[in-house]
């Protein structure tokens, strides 16, 4: 049997344990295989972002085990985690999280800087990634000179530039109008076809339906986990 890409066992996350504890995740067991395309849905405050951050190695669970490609994340040191965030995972945020005073190109180059690529190769790859999201002509613009959809595409280019196998997106279309959102989703579909594993959080049914599997979270628990019937 193939080792799942993501394997969460009994994950619990509690904020503010000593005062008024907030149980963001109660007991999550979840396995995601390579090249799955998964949507996570659920009401606001149900724990979706918390789950994504744990999967993205940005946050640590209060309890439980997380195996990424069979290796337990808990046992890894800060440097290894940074390396995983750099190479294995591409993270797309709802609020884009671009460096405001850097050009689109520099933003996309950033992960490559941290993997130590020489400048010329870095530039080539970053330019290619920007062309992939159809922003080659805007590479010298700063984020404040770009529209919301363009910013999100820069963020996607940044998430993809280091060719990670896992793409995590927390409400990638949440701040975009539906037309722009649909463009982003087309991009995701292509990425999935190319072999990426995609995990995305969304509120919108039609966005979620791009995926092949939809997980519903309610109050820190997985309420439903179903496949999508494609027409």
């Amino acid at each position: 049997m193939q080792v799942p890409l993501i394997d969460l066992r009994n994950i619990r996350k509690t904020y503010g344990e000593d005062k008024v504890p907030v149980h963001a995740l109660r007991k999550i067991d979840l396995a995601i295989k390579n090249n799955e395309y998964v949507s996570i849905m659920g009401p606001s405050g149900s724990g979706k972002s918390t789950l994504m951050n744990i999967i993205g190695c940005l946050d640590t669970p209060t309890e439980g085990q997380y195996f990424l490609e069979g290796e337990e994340v808990h046992t890894m040191n800060d440097n290894t985690l940074a390396r995983i965030r750099n190479r294995k995972i591409g993270f797309v945020f709802q609020t884009f999280n671009l460096l405001p005073r850097a050009s689109a190109l520099h933003n996309v180059e950033l992960p490559l800087i941290y993997s130590g690529l020489p400048a010329d190769e870095r530039k080539k790859r970053a330019e290619k990634a920007l062309e992939q999201v159809k922003l080659g002509h805007r590479k010298d613009h700063n984020p404040n000179e770009l529209s919301g959809g363009q910013r999100q595409r820069v963020a996607i280019a940044r998430a993809l530039v280091n060719r990670p196998s896992l793409l995590l997106a927390d409400e990638p279309t949440g701040n975009l109008d539906s037309e722009t959102g649909e463009e982003i989703m087309e991009l995701f579909d292509i990425l999935h076809k190319k072999g990426n594993t995609i995990l995305m959080v969304t509120h919108e049914e039609h966005v979620a339906n791009h995926a092949h599997r939809i997980i519903n979270i309610l109050d820190g628990n997985i309420a439903q986990d179903r496949g999508v019937v494609k027409k």
């Binding site: 993205g56 940005l58 800060d78 440097n79 940074a82 390396r83 965030r85 750099n86 190479r87 993270f91 999280n97 671009l98 460096l99 950033l110 992960p111 941290y114 993997s115 940044r158 280091n162």
Partner: peptide, 16 residues
Amino acid sequence: QKEIGIRKAIGATNSI
């Protein structure tokens, strides 16, 4: 701080 968060999220190590 936000910038530091972004840099860490995309792979900057503590030492960098």
